[in-house]
Amino acid sequence: MASAEDKKPVRKKPGRKLPPGAADRRQFLAVMNGDVIKDLKVAAAEEEITASELLEQAARELLERRKSKQAKKR
């Protein structure tokens, strides 16, 4: 017979819940200049996307350029 401890629910780490559809996402902390953060938020609002989405797009573009540059060197 199972003990009471075996029936305890598994507790997840405390913190913010991810928005719907973000189950495959992970959190990434970066420290930046306050003016850069402010400008990123303004740019994201102008694009009608979140700052996270804007940063992810920029990171993907940077990584793609780096990949293309490395492929040309070979």
Rank of each mutant, 00 (worst) to 15 (best):
A45V: 04
R25D: 13
Q57V: 00
V36F: 07
S52G: 02
A30T: 15
R66Y: 06
T50W: 01
G21L: 01
K12Y: 12
P9I: 02
M32T: 12
E47C: 10
R74Y: 10
K73M: 13
E56S: 14
T50C: 03
K69D: 05
A2M: 14
G21T: 00
S68L: 09
E48D: 08
T50F: 02
P19C: 09
A43C: 08
R60H: 08
M32G: 05
K41R: 09
L40C: 06
R26D: 08
A44R: 00
S52R: 02
S52M: 00
P9M: 01
A51T: 05
E64W: 09
E5K: 15
E61Y: 07
R26Q: 11
D39P: 01
R66G: 07
P14W: 04
A23L: 08
R65E: 11
I49Q: 00
D39G: 06
P14Y: 03
A30I: 15
D35G: 03
A23R: 13
K69N: 13
Q27H: 12
P20C: 00
E61N: 10
R26E: 11
K7H: 07
A30D: 05
V10D: 09
N33Y: 02
E47Y: 11
K17R: 14
A43V: 05
V36M: 05
L63M: 04
R65Y: 08
D24G: 15
